[in-house]
Amino acid sequence: TQVHVDGVTYTFSNPEEAKKFADEMAKRKGGTWEIKDGHIHVE
């Protein structure tokens, strides 16, 4: 599962880990995350 944050791609083999990471990054940025085309995007 790929997580895209500010133009950087992080790859996780476990989708649950990817979601936890996205959640943390979104909180830090004061933003949100969503799943697009099977990838997670942090806004």
Rank of each mutant, 00 (worst) to 15 (best):
T1A: 06
T1R: 04
T1K: 04
Q2P: 06
V3D: 00
V3F: 02
V3M: 01
V3E: 00
V3G: 00
V3C: 03
H4I: 10
H4P: 00
H4Q: 04
H4E: 05
V5D: 03
V5R: 01
D6W: 04
D6I: 02
G7I: 01
G7K: 06
V8F: 12
V8W: 12
V8G: 05
V8E: 12
V8Q: 12
T9Q: 08
T9R: 09
T9L: 09
T9M: 13
Y10I: 09
Y10D: 01
Y10E: 03
Y10Q: 03
T11M: 11
T11E: 11
T11W: 14
T11D: 08
T11R: 07
F12K: 00
F12N: 00
F12I: 01
S13G: 10
S13Y: 11
N14K: 06
N14T: 11
N14C: 14
N14L: 08
N14F: 07
P15L: 15
P15N: 09
P15Q: 12
E16H: 08
E16S: 08
E17F: 06
E17C: 15
E17T: 09
A18I: 00
A18L: 02
K19H: 10
K19P: 00
K19L: 13
K20M: 11
F21C: 12
F21Q: 00
F21D: 00
F21R: 00
A22V: 03
A22W: 02
A22G: 02
A22L: 03
D23P: 00
D23H: 07
D23Y: 08
D23L: 07
E24R: 08
E24W: 10
M25E: 12
M25Q: 11
M25K: 04
M25N: 04
M25W: 09
A26I: 14
A26C: 14
A26F: 02
K27E: 08
K27D: 07
K27R: 12
K27G: 07
K27N: 08
R28D: 09
R28H: 11
R28P: 03
K29Q: 09
K29P: 05
K29R: 13
K29T: 14
K29C: 15
K29V: 15
K29A: 12
G30H: 05
G30W: 00
G31E: 04
G31M: 07
G31C: 12
G31Q: 03
G31F: 06
G31H: 03
G31W: 09
T32W: 15
T32K: 14
T32Q: 12
T32D: 09
T32I: 13
T32A: 12
T32V: 10
T32F: 15
W33K: 06
W33P: 06
W33D: 05
W33Y: 07
E34G: 05
E34Q: 08
E34H: 13
E34F: 15
I35W: 15
I35G: 06
I35Y: 13
I35R: 03
I35M: 12
K36E: 10
K36W: 09
K36Y: 13
K36H: 14
D37H: 04
D37W: 05
D37A: 04
D37C: 14
D37F: 05
D37E: 08
G38A: 04
G38M: 04
G38L: 04
G38I: 03
G38D: 05
H39F: 07
H39W: 06
H39G: 07
H39N: 07
I40W: 04
I40G: 02
H41D: 07
H41L: 12
V42L: 07
V42S: 02
V42F: 10
V42P: 02
V42A: 02
E43T: 15
E43I: 15
E43F: 15
E43P: 05
E43H: 14
